[in-house]
Design a protein around this nucleic acid. Structure first.
Lengths: 339, 339
DNA sequence: CTGCTGCCTGACAACGCTTGCACGCTAGAA
DNA sequence: TTCTAGCGTGCAAGCGTTGTCAGGCAGCAG
């Protein structure tokens, strides 16, 4: 910066003022500084300015995994908004419980970011407390954190609606396939399961634990989960999958074993993944990119304007998209006519 | 830090030395410092230390888009390695040419990261020059950058092999569907097209520009691209798609219009996307997560050990996985027996 | 001509950490 | 006993910015 100052024939103060766009600089000086900065291809060091301002110009996001469709979409929306706001995006992912513990132990974001976004984590009370005491705004993404800033879709209501829809098609035995709890990605898992249970109760159907199975990424696990459902004495006629990615795996296992979808089993997903349309998968659409955008701008607001309500909520809509993987239950019992 | 020092009854120097694990601290002092730091939940400010050391502890990655399958997988591998190395991961994405120009103009990574990873960018000479003068190591990921550190698969050879495979099935009219050049994701696009052309030449087949079409994300664009192929006077009997994501869209368009795959048209993809197996898509597999890991550890090496060959290359293997979307060309011409 | 008001500008003290240097101490060699 | 070596520690000088403060210089009214 001193070099730029010398070249422009001014002091470092003036360079600093110019480069930050403060108005108290004469046009002439401004011009000379900008030229000098360009010639020396000078950019200000974030580390140095953040040392004095206390702002890092960075937002950190903690996700259970990168590489899942949902997280990818959220990141897309997020980076778009943050770029416009001049903020950098730092990503942390924790794949398993050990890493998770390590993250909360070290909490590297503590002083290295102006805000932290937490994507779909089922946090313990201790972890919540740790984040509350972090000293920077935390935005909970894709999860409803009471009393804290969050951006989410109404998972419970959406899952209830999805289950009702299946019920309306005459299904009485509806399975729920969730992501394995050890994946860490269990927040929406829990809430959606809750909506599913509510809808069952509403329809007077029993909650049967045998109908709730978990799977983790990969064909083998899903085959096992589906297998468990198929060999029940009273197997399901419909499957509600926590995400489209799981639904697609289920679909594949069912088709590979010659089971007609939706003839014998209906499949309902959640997300409206890019591929859902190609596969004609009935699903509950959520605006994933928009979730990222909203989270980004909420974080931006929280950073710039400390007077903002720290418990602000943004709720985004979902909608069920009926497609070809769901159909009427074939073997309706006499009382199913209520649908 | 002064607080910690006071509480532990030592100087800040000793606190600094302790917290960085230097050995020249007595066990007794170390213990007291660690206790004090824990009680005050103190963490070192990266900004401040990087101001002194010149190291930021951060690696930046520039990608054409987040949210594509390939980038997601690379990020997964990357974050895994970087986490172990104690480095943070910062992501920048540029969606269009304007943003791209802005990025290279401002080059925010300049002093804010210890290394920059560039994922699959078809860079201009000017951009290469700009990055060369950046002052931090740059690793080119999923692209071969001559004389510069890069991690990639042999796209040309793989595409050649894939095209040969189709040729071996008797196909003479092989289309190539690429990502739209304006998406920025054009590096592998170009190299794979090159391999395709080589294989055609090798087989004595003409390169027909009508058989090369571009598409961008979304059903509509792909329908148009496939439509252009189908209404050719001499339409293709096989399609080589630049990525599995494109291949899947092509597959979907073909099936939706009642065209038998592989009966009338064979489809070959590239990536071995998670869904490729479910869709029984023949594809050229590349180890995307491994690419990310290799890139991460190369960056790590380059940062820590300046003596490393700055033009180090890591080449990872690909392999063709024959599945159900490719089959023999039906209407073989007399001389097709050579296959 | 003097005094006052504004507008720009430069000097300088932080910000929180690292690191070279010097100091004091103990221990073993001479 | 004196000298040297080595270890553990503290001091203080930065690292590259920002923000405060005072000062110089016009311009204008008195």
């Amino acid at each position: 910066m001193a070099d730029v100052a010398e070249r422009a024939g001014v002091s470092v103060s003036t360079v600093s003022r110019t480069l930050r766009g403060l108005s108290t600089v004469s046009d002439e000086a401004r011009e000379r500084v900008e030229a000098a900065a360009r010639e020396l291809s000078f950019v200000i060091s974030r580390q140095a300015s953040s040392l004095v301002t206390g702002k890092t110009g960075t937002v950190a996001v903690l996700a259970p995994t990168l590489g899942s469709w949902f997280v990818g979409q959220v990141l897309r929306g997020l980076s778009e908004v943050l770029r416009d706001a001049g903020l950098d995006l730092m990503v942390y992912s924790v794949a398993d419980l050990a890493e998770r513990a390590a993250f909360f132990d070290r909490l590297p974001a503590r002083r290295n970011a102006d805000a932290l976004l937490v994507v779909s984590f089922d946090l313990t009370e201790a972890e919540f407390a740790r984040l509350d005491g972090l000293g920077v705004p935390v935005v909970y993404v894709s999860q409803h954190a009471p009393g804290r800033a969050s951006v989410y879709v109404e998972d419970v209501a959406a899952a209830r609606a999805g289950t009702r829809y299946l019920r309306g098609l005459g299904h009485r035995r509806i399975a729920y396939v969730r992501a394995s709890p050890d994946s860490g990605f269990t927040c929406s898992s829990r809430t959606r399961l809750f909506g599913y249970r509510e809808a069952l109760a509403e329809a007077g159907l029993p909650y049967d634990e045998d109908l709730v199975v978990a799977t983790s990424r990969g064909r083998r696990e899903t085959s096992k989960a589906v297998g468990r459902l198929l060999c029940l004495a009273d197997p399901p006629t419909a499957v509600f999958a926590e995400t489209d990615e799981i639904a697609m795996e289920v679909l594949w296992v069912l088709r590979a074993s010659g089971i007609d979808v939706p003839g014998r089993i209906s499949v309902l997903g959640f997300d409206d993944h890019d591929h859902a349309e190609w596969l004609d998968l009935t699903t509950i659409a959520q605006p994933a990119v928009e979730v990222g955008r909203a989270a980004g701008s909420l974080a931006h607001t929280l950073i710039d304007d400390p007077a903002t309500d720290p418990a602000r909520h943004v709720v985004l809509p979902t909608c069920l998209i009926p497609r070809g993987t769901t159909g009427p239950a074939l073997f309706q019992e006499p009382d199913a006519g209520e649908a």
